[in-house]
């Protein structure tokens, strides 16, 4: 039986369709970027090979995306740099999510002194500017990717910790947790089955958003010269390297900058509909 849809129903259907479109585009972009980054070594030349006769080559002629000031293939460096950036971002996000969720659950479950201690630690950490901290660690350890990862993890976990704790606290006060305690389930069981199940969807959204941001942060640090040592490519570092030649060949800055924006944007596209998805 065909039914005429009311305005509200149409509106609802439109929103859903729009969100589905958002997610599809986001996923498509991310998979394209990952595909490019992963297959890079096979489809592009050696990223470290200098060819001084091809300095500042235009895109399309000899190199797919042209060559930089040392005659290295930009396409190859983009792939290699992207692999570095995405790999380190993933490490950072996973590390901070694990630490944040663990500490957040601990704080909410034990309460009292444990809670106070962890939350004050969160406050202290959050008061620390991430990039300055990275500079500090890099200064002490002499740079390298580890400094960047440690710094970003250190500034990343408090956010996950706070959200986890807030959701866990409201879940703990629900009667079904009390019922679980009365039935004699262990703390681990209740935390895993009841509380973590409530925390997980929210944290997934946050982590997706956080991933985009971490890519940006790593590139920002790369731009400042912290992180990977040259000639190892990295998107942010590539922008920094090419800045002096912005006038002559803007492509060199535009390509990594655009790819970076696109990556961050596509992660936001994925996270956005996730965050509004109702349960079931």
């Amino acid at each position: 039986m065909p039914q005429k849809l009311s305005d509200d129903q149409l509106e609802m259907a439109n929103v859903k369709q729009y969100e589905r479109l958002q997610r599809t585009i986001g996923l498509l972009l991310v998979s394209l970027i990952i595909l490019f980054v992963v297959t890079g070594p096979w489809i592009t030349p050696d990223p470290y090979q200098q060819n001084l006769s091809q300095v500042f080559a235009e895109p399309g002629t000899h190199y797919l995306l042209g060559a930089d000031h040392l005659g290295r293939s930009v396409a190859a460096r983009m792939a290699e740099g992207g692999r570095n950036t995405i790999y380190y971002s993933l490490l950072c996000v996973v590390g901070s999510v694990l630490a944040g969720v663990f500490l957040g659950l601990t704080a909410a479950w034990y309460g009292d002194l444990t809670d106070t201690l962890i939350m004050r630690l969160v406050d202290i950490t959050m008061a620390f500017p991430g990039i300055i901290l990275a500079l500090l660690i890099a200064g002490v350890t002499g740079g390298g990717p580890m400094a960047v990862i440690i710094a970003l993890m250190f500034t990343g976990w408090p956010e996950y910790c706070r959200i986890t704790r807030a959701i866990a606290m409201s879940t703990i006060s629900r009667p079904y947790v009390e019922s679980g305690i009365l039935a004699g389930f262990s703390s681990i069981f209740i935390l895993r089955k009841y509380i973590f199940a409530e925390v997980l969807p929210q944290i997934t959204v946050l982590a997706t958003l956080g991933f985009g941001r971490t890519v940006l942060n790593i590139s920002a640090l790369g731009f400042l010269g912290i992180g990977l040592a040259p000639p190892e490519p990295e998107w942010g570092a590539m922008i920094a390297e090419s800045l002096p030649y912005l006038r002559e060949s803007p492509n060199l800055v535009l390509i990594p900058a655009a790819t970076l924006s696109l990556t961050v944007f596509s992660f936001f596209l994925i996270a956005n509909p996730l965050s509004r998805k109702p349960r079931k």
């Binding site: 629900r174 009667p175 079904y176 019922s179 009365l182 039935a183 089955k193 199940a197 409530e198 349960r279």
Partner: peptide
């Protein structure tokens, strides 16, 4: 054991 006032509150919503 205990039964709560709010119907359904003894069961986790995602299970």
């Amino acid at each position: 054991q205990k039964i709560h006032q709010e119907p359904g509150s003894s069961f986790p919503p995602q299970q």
